[in-house]
Nucleic acid binder design. Structure first.
Ligand SMILES: [Mn+2]
Ligand SMILES: [Mn+2]
Ligand SMILES: [Zn+2]
Ligand SMILES: [Zn+2]
Lengths: 150, 150
DNA sequence: ATACAAATGCAACATTATTGTATTTAGAAA
DNA sequence: TTTCTAAATACAATAATGTTGCATTTGTAT
């Protein structure tokens, strides 16, 4: 499920990345780590509506640069942010996992466990990174659809 | 390479889909069919800058609905549009191919020939569609990088 | 030729994102 | 603890992308 971390750990994370411990940053970390799905920019903005929009963008950008979170666009092109589980470094991400976008609840899941099969591209193409998107029903929504509601 | 079609064929396409033959639509078709890569919304807008922006959006939307083109977001979340090569029908696309986004020239290639491997998702997930993204260097750009420039 | 639905063009607006700068603050140094 | 400063936030302005409503124009069927 969601990675459980307390406020001290979030403060440590910021310190490790040479980022000042500020309330907005800690709140963003806390929110994103409390969920097992990515969080969309609109959601972040409405939940953190007392934080300035620009500040929020800058927090998300610096977290992404530092390898704390990664950005993924859902099927509608909306930016979603999820915590990095892999060994992501500053400006060097390793988030080549499958992203599952539920067509019902719109949530984006990072399925880190799945390993991506090797693919051979046509001659001349030199791929450096792959990501797979799947869309369909997530566990919660597929349960609702079939049996007695969850 | 790029699918070669003449203006009569574009007119036929529109007629088949019960769309009126208009200059803006024919120009969009002509441009998109003349390329072997997707075209970004900003590019379309600047090339077709004498067509009203809203008209362009509506043309792209109706072409997508009719199964003539499909929309794909590149690594930066920018909307790109490419002609459908598969047997796409009105509101029923079959564009589950790999999209290659060149990090140098930013072009998005639809690699229809590649077949996507079957993937098994964690229990509960019910996938309905997959798309794979690859990023790296396209044939043109990888050639430039290594040998005597193209 | 006429008529009408469809398509375009235009204006207004909404959302998402960026840039510049003044103010505030976390954390280091004194 | 107080002082200092670079970093972070807040605010204002602007850009880019996308949508909605409506008046006008146009393709096409009759
Ligand atoms: Mn992810
Ligand atoms: Mn494609
Ligand atoms: Zn769901
Ligand atoms: Zn290229």
């Amino acid at each position: 499920m969601a990675q459980v971390k307390n406020n001290y750990q979030f403060e440590d994370m910021l310190q490790k990345h040479n980022l000042k411990k500020t309330a907005p940053r800690l709140r963003v970390l806390s929110m994103m780590y409390s969920k097992n799905t990515a969080t969309s920019q609109p959601d972040l903005e409405s939940v953190m509506n007392d934080i300035d929009r620009v500040t929020l963008y800058r927090i998300l950008n610096v977290f992404e640069e530092k390898g704390i979170i990664h950005k993924v666009f859902d099927l509608n092109g909306t930016a979603n942010y999820a915590v990095c589980h892999s060994d992501c470094q500053e400006n060097h991400h390793h988030d080549e996992h499958l992203h599952f976008n539920c067509t019902a609840c719109k949530n984006v899941y990072c399925l880190n466990e799945l390993n991506i099969p090797k693919l051979t591209l046509p001659a001349g193409f030199e791929p450096q990174a792959f990501t797979i998107y799947a869309s369909g029903l997530c566990p919660k929504c597929s349960k609702k659809g079939t049996a007695k509601t969850n």
